[in-house]
């Protein structure tokens, strides 16, 4: 079960909220302080990408962020509802084309480049239901108070 689950409407101003929540939950889960900046940046990139995808495809559904404190790892899943290319209502088919889309795609790739540079354990998957970026970080063992 998710430790914390967050859904927000696909508006850029809410990405900051997602960053703050993710960093707070990660800290509580025992992710090293030195790595929290990376968590903040990576979740921000993933959420910005999802917001951009929802907006460019006219999807009104919220972006979903699932934060899970597992044994020895802390994982974050950021899900969008844009179907994978090639499936019904694919990204390519619904795009209107033109310079604006190319710009958005460029930023999209840069965001993924930053995430993959930051996070050792990350995977991107996409189905006809939407895309998910999954990232995880090790957590320090929690010392049990006497």
């Amino acid at each position: 079960m998710a430790t914390v689950e967050l859904r927000f409407s696909a508006q850029p101003e809410h990405v900051r909220t997602a960053r703050l929540v993710a960093a707070a939950v990660a800290r509580r889960a025992g992710v090293d302080e030195a790595v929290l900046d990376e968590v903040r940046l990576a979740v921000g990139e993933a959420c910005s990408r999802a917001v951009g995808l929802h907006r460019s495809h006219g999807i009104t559904a919220p972006v979903r962020v699932v934060l899970t404190d597992e044994d020895k790892t802390f994982s974050i899943e950021v899900g969008d509802e844009v179907p994978a290319p090639g499936s019904d209502g694919s990204r390519a088919a619904s795009g209107s084309g033109g310079a604006a889309d190319e710009d958005a795609d460029g930023e999209d790739e840069m965001g993924l480049a930053v995430i993959s540079g930051l996070v050792d354990d990350m995977e991107v998957s996409s189905t006809d239901e939407g895309g998910v970026i999954r990232m995880s970080w090790p957590t320090a063992p929690v010392s049990v108070l006497p």
């Binding site: 960053r19 903040r40 940046l41 921000g44 990139e45 910005s48 460029g106 930023e107 840069m110 965001g111 480049a113 930053v114």
Partner: peptide, 9 residues
């Protein structure tokens, strides 16, 4: 305090 890929762009 914070910079992401949108800022880089």
């Amino acid at each position: 305090d914070f910079l992401d890929s949108t800022g880089l762009g």
